[in-house]
Structures are given as C-alpha cells and as structure tokens.
C-alpha cells in the first residue's frame, strides 16, 4: 500500500488556481523530493498532504485514509504525519524539552516519563541533547530546525513532510540539517521533501518530482530528472538552479 496517494488534486486561492490536477504517490520507505520554481505550487501540494490547506477537489489518501472525507478525524490522521517548516515554527515560550513532549503528552496521552524518554531519544538522534533545557530563541537556525525534526519524530510518524527545511538557514548551517535528514532516509523513513537542495535530491531521493505552473511536469529517479531531464521546462529550471549567473 502506498503511504501517500493523491488523485486529481486541485487547489485554488480565490480565482488563482495553484494546483491543477495532481496525481502522484509515495511508496512506503521512499524519499521523494519535489523541486520547481517558486509559485509552482510545490509547497501548496505538500500542505495539502496533511490538510493544512483544504484541497478544492480531488482526494488525498495517507496510510489508506482519505483525508478529504469530511467524516475523517483530521487531528488523528495528522498525528502520524510529521511536518517540518521553512521557518521552524518551534514554540518559543517552551523549552526544547517541552517542545518535543507537549504533543506527546496532550495528543498521544503518553505518560510523562515516557514522553521524556522519547524526547531524549530523538534529541540524541539530531545531536542536540545538550540543548534540552534551552529555549528556541537561544538556538541557531540550524539547531532550531533539528529540534523541529525531533519534535515531529517524537510522534512516531509514518510519513515526514519537509517544506523547504533549509531555505531560511545561513549556508554554513544547512549541512547539519541535511545530514540529519539523510540519516532519517537511511533509517527507512518515508519522506516528501520540497527543496532547492539539488545535491540532496540527487544523492538521497528515490524519486524527484519537477513541478511548474501547478502541474507535475516530470517524475522519475534523480539520475533521470536532474541529470537527463526530458522536458524543456525542467532543463531550463535546472540550468538556472545549477549554474546561477550563467
């Protein structure tokens, strides 16, 4: 069974149609990178997967549950879909520990010591256990993003969504976040990543999806989409991204 199955997805903001009929799937354990120019609808697509954006039409099935069905408990479904944002969105009034435990406690109703154990385990994984009692504003952007990843992982998601996770970071901080994501991919996590990091996409992704103008233009293994794109639009985009200033 596919982890994500999207059929004929449309999304409009007012009269602006951002997604115009998207069909695609993510198999369990796959890492799929979505690339494309800004305004192509890739972030909107990602946000439709956990229904942060309500699709205008079409179906979004995650783990066999159709999230667009009004009878579905969307809060229950979101527990298994981790999301990492461009702007980190850590809770600035809570410590790192509390950031990682608050949803476990309030949503999953885990026992306090269990929450703490899971928090430590995941902070260990992203290499920030020593920051457990710090507040987010005391951390660098890269550290905040790694805490955000730990926060999402603490819910034991079956799918992780990344919305341009390194775009807001200073260049020298990007590497730490990418290496955490690489480790996650190696551990077999199903990941859907909107990114501009072509190197990451080429090395880590099982599939690369190129979007433009609200549709999927090209979908295939990275060695094909990035190294040998079939479509003119893909080629144009890649030449601009890979050789800026030429």
């Amino acid at each position: 069974m596919s982890t994500v199955e999207i059929k004929n997805l449309h999304k409009s903001f007012g009269s602006l149609e951002v997604l115009r009929g998207i069909d695609f799937t993510v198999e369990s354990g796959q890492v799929v990178c979505v690339i494309g120019p800004s305004g192509s609808g890739k972030s909107t697509l990602l946000r439709c997967v956990n229904l942060l954006e309500q699709p205008t039409s079409g179906t979004v099935v995650v783990d066999g549950v159709d999230l667009t069905d009004p009878d579905v408990d969307i809060d229950a479904a979101r527990r298994h879909i981790g999301m990492v944002f461009q702007q980190f969105n850590l809770f600035p009034h809570l410590t790192v520990r509390r950031n990682v435990t608050v949803a476990q406690e309030r949503v999953l109703k885990r026992r306090k010591d269990e929450c703490d154990r899971v928090a430590r385990e995941n902070l260990e994984k992203v290499g920030l256990i020593e920051k457990i009692d710090a507040y987010p504003p005391q951390l660098s952007g890269g550290q905040q993003q790694r805490v955000a990843i730990a926060r999402a992982l603490a819910m034991n998601p079956s799918l992780m969504l990344f919305d341009e996770p390194t775009s807001a970071l200073d260049p020298e901080l990007v590497g730490d976040v990418l290496s955490v994501m690489r480790q996650l991919a190696e551990d077999g996590m199903t990941m859907l990543v909107v990114t501009h990091e072509m190197g990451f996409a080429r090395e880590v992704a099982d599939r690369v999806v190129f979007m433009d103008g609200g549709v999927i233009v090209e979908d295939g293994p990275p060695e094909q989409v990035i190294a040998d794109p079939r479509h003119e639009r893909t080629r144009e985009f890649l030449s601009r991204v890979l050789h800026p200033g030429v």
């Binding site: 956990n50 942060l52 809060d75 229950a76 979101r78 527990r79 879909i81 981790g82 999301m83 944002f85 702007q87 969105n89 850590l90 809770f91 600035p92 009034h93 608050v102 949803a103 309030r106 949503v107 999953l108 955000a148 926060r151 999402a152 819910m155």
Partner: peptide, 25 residues
Amino acid sequence: KGQMEAARSLGMPHMRAMITIIIPQ
C-alpha cells in the same frame, strides 16, 4: 500563523492549540 500550523500538524485540535500554544504567547 506558523505557530498554529505547527500545533495542528502535531495533531492538536484547534482549541487545544489555542490554550497550549497561542494564548500563552
């Protein structure tokens, strides 16, 4: 706005997110 989105993406219902995340800030 990202605060509410982060809370909701963790599975918190709207009211829970309001009380735990938004109102304290």
